[in-house]
Write a protein that binds this DNA or RNA. Sequence first.
RNA 1: GGGCGCGUAGCUCAGCGGGAGAGCACCUCGUUGACAUCGAGGGGGUCACAGGUUCGAUCCCUGUCGCGCCCA
Length: 952
Amino acid sequence: MIEKTYQPADIEGRIAQAWEAEGAFKAGRPERRDAPPFSIVIPPPNVTGSLHMGHALNNTLQDILCRFERMRGRDVLWQPGTDHAGIATQMVVERQLMERQEPSRRDMGREKFLERVWQWKAESGGVIVNQLKRLGASCDWSRERFTMDEGLSRAVVKVFVELHRQGLIYKDKRLVNWDPKLLTAISDLEVQQVEVKGNLWHLRYPLDGVDFNPDDPETFIVVATTRPETMLGDTAVAVNPDDVRYSHVVGRHVILPLVGRKIPIIADLYSDPEKGSGAVKITPAHDFNDFEVGRRHNLPQINVLDIEGRIDLVDNEAYLHGLPEGAAQFAEELHGLERFAARKSILARLEELGYLEKIEPNVHMVPHGDRSGVVIEPYLTDQWYVDAKTLAQPAIAAVRSGATTFVPKNWEKTYFEWMDNIQPWCISRQLWWGHQIPAWYGPDGKVFVAESEEEAVGNALGYYVEQEVITPAQAHAMTQDASLREGFITRDEDVLDTWFSSALWPFSTLGWPDDDTDVKRYYPTNVLVTGFDIIFFWVARMMMMGLHFMDDVPFPTVYIHALVRDEKGAKMSKSKGNVIDPLHLIDDYGADALRFTLAAMAAQGRDIKLASSRVEGYRNFATKLWNSSRFAEMNACALPEDFDPTAAKQTLNRWIAHETVRAVRDVTEAIEAYRFNDAAGAAYRFVWNVYCDWYLELAKPVLLGEDSPAKAETRAMVAWARDEILKLLHPFMPFITEELWAVTAERDTLLTLTPWSRKAEARVEVFDAPALTDPMVPPVMLPAPQVADFSDPAAEAEIGWVVDLVTAIRSVRAEMNITPSTLTPLVLAGASAETRDRAQRWSDVVKRMARLGEISFADSAPQGAVQLLVRGEVAALPLKGVIDVAAEQARLDKELAKAEADIKRVDAKLSNEKFVANAPEEIVEEEKEKREAAVARKAKILEALERLKNAE
RNA sequence: GGGCGCGUAGCUCAGCGGGAGAGCACCUCGUUGACAUCGAGGGGGUCACAGGUUCGAUCCCUGUCGCGCCCA
């Protein structure tokens, strides 16, 4: 029995358990061993994260595809899991330690701290996974993976070692985005540019060989800078080669104020004549652009900050090199000053000595760490890098050749732009939580990279024996006893960027490198579903690693979906400025309503601004579906064995079969094309505006009438169409459809494993060695194909007439303010034989739905009647005395004007020679038909007006 | 400064070469036996603006204005 009211909260948990108990979402179910696989890897959410609207959308769309393909008979693997989120997780645990007033990370040491992280992960790391389950995500949860798992860690080590061996991973001294609070390098993508009101300080750098005089511009050159404190590390002044103001000084030198270093004036295009003074100081160790300029001109790199962003000059060889007497004292005075304090101090000194020309307010972008919130320091350090440029080449080629395509296609441009300008990928992080880099150093700093410590130590000891640094006996002892080699051979302390492991996700989760059974079956995956902000994070890196290690793209299709405006609120709701929490929406309206809303709004290429009223609207849709199933149940509608909808006798039943087949086709094709909003829209309209509004209403007289073959057939058809609807909606609304599936009949299987109906026009082919990368391989478990091709234009014409007639009468009744209790007679004037037949067949229904009394026929409409045009014929409501003649006249006049306007417009077109000559034939034909129809309409309206006049 | 995208009904959004649609809101009517989380009917839009291409432009092109995002 179906419950009286639809209560999503009551069914969702129970249904989820049913799926779980059946193992419905497990990949490799025995009966699908020979089915073509369909696989998706989830873009692994951050283990510290919780479900936001973006996740809800992303996973709803993946789930629609997975459920759809599962119902089409494929062996679906939706691979779930989370990533270990190095910085974020480490920060969460550190905060926890602080709150509990426990020893800090550094106090407890690395090993103890990592234990605590794992403990945290065990206790709180699964939050988002459970939230995804509430959403209904049909992942194979038994295969859940974590980037720090043993298996995935082995993949990481193997990839690192192999890339290192191939020269694609190397150690280099370059500028990185340094977080002086977290004390680690971070990626470009973790840096946020924030607009800051600062200043542009104009500094006078005295020219070498002349006496500096602040009042004589001939004795100095002015440079403008936003970061005066970095002047300590300046190694040149650059001017634009085309800037005539400075051409005479190129090649000369300046003496760096305060410091006393003699540095050259160079010509470089980087210097923009329009900006500041046109001359710019070059600090290769503290600015990314300057770093490049420095490389072009072989400038020294002088780092003047320590890891915490404090001035670091004492014992700084690079800085002190070549400085005059007294430099050491100046160095001591500034040493240890925090960078912003140093700025003040340096500016004060410059001003005092006449080196500060002016201060100009300046708004500019300053990089901030998205986790720490502090200003990021471009910082010169030794880090590990991936040669991304080399790895990117095949990844670029794969998209150019179409081996991987983006949907929508315009995102390929973004992809290319990034890939073409890709920089070396800094993969080391100065953190503890993550994959520790498999590199060991000897006493001279020589690096040994290997998959295991034993191997690395063996290689190292062998090398140092050969170099006669140690004796073979010492080496042997060190091999045996790790404590003996302490301080001699040490492991790199750093860990790898989280994205390094995420890049391997499409194959590491399948068991690589330990077992390639699943790799063979499920790689490449069929599609990656993600937001565009993630193209750089995941798509590019997965492409590079997949192509390099699997020799194939990780996915032939990348579906990029819209962004749901998030917690910043600016876009969410103008009035409230609040986030909409998907879990609250699930509480309020059910997961199905939320999912359907997201799907319905997921039009390609547009952001989603979600209004909860939309969710409410789709919850009402779910209720509608629920109640229509109740109606079917109350009328004992059940599907008999071997029911063949195409063999139905009743026109109404043939009509709904026809409409159902069409809906199945529309929905199927839309999902195939990733047009989720069209799919949802087609299903919605069919269920509500076709099945509920008309089919069930038109079927009521039969269902409420006496038993007959027609009634039996109708009961069967109501049930058949309902089942088709449940299947059609299941990918979108899995919970309610599964529940209704269970309570409306005895079922062999869960709905989620029930075959999808075959769409019309699909090629009926036996599954035969398809390309496994084709996401739209025909399914193997196909039901009766004859249904797919069914179509009945005659039934469509007849029911269409009924619908039009009822609608027209209702409309005019409302317009004339005729109360529902007034039953009006209907006269069909000059009706064709076909119309007479139809009218007789549908008399009961039309009477009931249009609130009619008797239906009769006449040659022409009675005098003083309201006359309606239904499919070219006149339907008259004799309402003498009831209607307002003047109002009816006005109504007809309006219609007449409309018809005349139509004729005029079409005539304008048809009389245009160019239109007739240039427009496609079918368009011209269409216009002619439109004209004929309008002319006929006009004639009928004129007749009607005439009769109205006579009535007066 | 460069790139991408968006300005369509009061609100949130579809459509995108041949006289514009949905959900919500609004107005009128409805206690008929699936459903008031409902039913019937209705009002409401020079599709930002200006040019151009075209037989024809909300849709394609150019520019302007407004807004958003990404990258410098």
